[in-house]
């Protein structure tokens, strides 16, 4: 395969993983924008979504669409219950305290996943069959289209939500000015809840859609979450377009460095990016500094 073909291959792979990071990043962004803290549960939803879908379709034989819906519902339910029990605004938690609580939640999720689904990595069959599509020299798994397409669909849905619905505008108001929002009658409590559950759903969808390409294992939640967080910071924490852009960029950066520099420390690249970012541009690549 020529150099161009190889590059294209790497780019496709980068876009694919980048889409997942973007989805996770959207979840982080939503919670941070509305409620002001970082939820370390974000990565766990990806894992839970994937594992539930796998368990329902592979072990219980349910049809895939049903399994997927149930997985998203299940993860959202987990998020909803968790939020009501521990993070409701009545408790008046500082952002640090909330973060710590979500850390505990992440381990509860991880522990539960281990007990219910076991320690072995599991997988799903590709949605459109295993035969990849070829564009000249470049071979692309069909699942990649599903993944990138899902990102596009969710991004569009979010855009429509914020631009066209009352709830969406209310949520944006919350993130811009909490006091002002409250004065206008917006229920911050409800907004916090909705954003938390929505981010769980988005995470679960990401988990379901990546499962056919990667094996899903109970203990990957934190790592996935951190990468999504890095993507969110890359694009400017609190910006939805930034989250998407950051995710894509991170995926490409990882893919390119893994292919052309070293594949062994692929994960380390992302973390190094984070540290460098926080050092020089904590506001993201095009955000205001700080």
């Amino acid at each position: 395969m020529g150099a161009v073909g190889q590059l294209a291959q790497v780019v496709v792979a980068g876009l694919t993983s980048g889409s997942i990071y973007a989805l996770v990043a959207l979840g982080f962004t939503m919670i941070f924008a509305v409620s002001g803290f970082i939820s370390l549960l974000q990565g766990e939803y990806v894992i839970l979504g994937g594992l539930i879908a796998i368990a329902l379709s592979q072990w219980l034989g349910l049809p895939l669409p049903v399994a997927i819906l149930a997985a998203v519902a299940g993860a959202s339910l987990f998020g909803a219950i968790f939020q009501r029990l521990t993070l409701s605004p009545k408790r008046n938690l500082s952002p640090d305290a909330a973060l710590i609580v979500t850390l505990g939640g992440a381990f509860v999720a991880r522990g539960t996943a281990m007990v219910v689904f076991g320690k072995d990595p599991l997988s799903l069959p590709s949605f459109s069959g295993e035969r990849p599509v070829a564009f000249g020299e470049v071979v692309v798994a069909t699942q990649a289209f599903w993944i990138i397409g899902t990102l596009a669909a969710i991004a569009a849905a979010l855009w429509a939500f914020f631009a066209l619905t009352y709830t969406g505008k209310a949520m944006q108001a919350c993130s811009q000015n909490a006091t002002g929002a409250r004065l206008v009658g917006i229920d911050l409590n409800a907004m916090g809840f909705i954003s938390f559950v929505a981010s769980a759903a988005i995470g679960a969808i990401a988990g379901v859609v990546i499962a056919p390409l990667n094996f899903v294992s109970y203990d990957e939640g934190l790592a996935v979450g951190i990468k999504g967080f890095i993507a969110a910071v890359l694009g400017g924490l609190g910006s939805y377009p930034g989250a998407v852009a950051g995710g894509i960029l991170l995926g490409l950066a990882e893919g390119l460095s893994a292919a052309y520099i070293s594949s062994q420390f692929k994960d380390a690249i992302a973390f190094v990016i984070l540290l460098v970012l926080l050092l020089f541009r904590p506001g993201g690549l095009w955000g205001a500094t700080r």
Partner: peptide
Amino acid sequence: VPLLRLRGYYLAVATLAFQLIMLSV
């Protein structure tokens, strides 16, 4: 040095990231 200039939650998440880097190293 870089992280403690930022809000506390950046340090917290960065320490988690550091943990994962170390593990992979």
